[in-house]
Design a protein around this nucleic acid. Structure first.
Lengths: 145, 145
DNA sequence: AACTCTATATATAAGAC
DNA sequence: TGTCTTATATATAGAGT
């Protein structure tokens, strides 16, 4: 959607890449917000900029803790039934060994978060969030790549 | 972008809501993928459908573990410096007590995930992922609402 | 729900500030 | 990076299948 149609490949020129990133990040967030409002759905969007800055978007309208409530009210069985991960694969044999290895590396990090009273400030929470997402993404990668 | 301009508010009709959700989810993912390719950026997108199905999208092109590497190579200080959370607030005084209480409730869940060898199958990982994201969102909510 | 169709609304490329 | 403009590409509303 512009003066020209552009090819879908990595933009090499750094200036152009940053510019496009800004525009598209804005657009993506707007879309996410619209969907959150229209469909009353929760959305979490984490984007790493070309300069590696993590940006977390959290457009939502729910009362505090609603997501967790919803999830904890489901039995494990129900949860499994209702899961619908779009990137699931079933022809690739899952390498659990690798998953475990990767999770092992992160176990020590998680351990430090077990005591909520260590949560002292926003900066710490921010780092925690980021690690949670990293681990999440790591787990996912093992099952997709 | 359709035959009519629509109001930005929750769609009440469940059928219509589902239909819009499907279309927009598709669109949102496409946008996310385009941005990931064009700007060479990592994106994680988690969407809860109107029926509470969590959908995780992970369009990416990076080698395994790259995100985590990048993050673990940064010092804590650097990380704090580089963070750019779009929804940060500094006029709302943060209620740490409430945050701790909520985190406390989830501590037992995290405890079960400490041993990676308990990870037995995809279903389990899926549930783990979801809880991680829930906690993430919960933490975020405390600091936004 | 998932797909098609088509008119219309919206996002954005290029370019300049 | 942010903002504006304009032409054009794309997303999607509404309706039907």
């Amino acid at each position: 959607m512009g003066r020209k149609k552009i090819e879908l490949k990595k933009i090499e020129c750094p200036k152009e890449k940053s510019s496009k990133y800004s525009k598209r990040k804005k657009g993506l967030l707007k879309k996410a917000e619209e969907m959150a409002v229209l469909c009353d759905s929760d959305i979490i969007l984490l984007v790493f900029s070309p300069t590696s800055k993590p940006n977390l978007f959290y457009p939502h309208s729910r009362p505090l803790g609603r997501i967790l409530e919803r999830l904890s009210n489901m039995s494990e069985y129900e949860r499994e039934e209702r899961f619908d991960l779009s990137l699931q694969e079933d022809d690739k044999v899952i390498e659990l060994g690798e998953a475990r290895e990767l999770l092992d590396e992160n176990t020590s990090i998680l351990r430090n978060w077990q005591d909520p009273h260590r949560v002292d400030d926003l900066a710490r929470l921010t780092i925690m969030e980021d690690h949670l997402v990293s681990i999440l993404s790591l787990i996912k990668k093992v099952f997709i790549n």
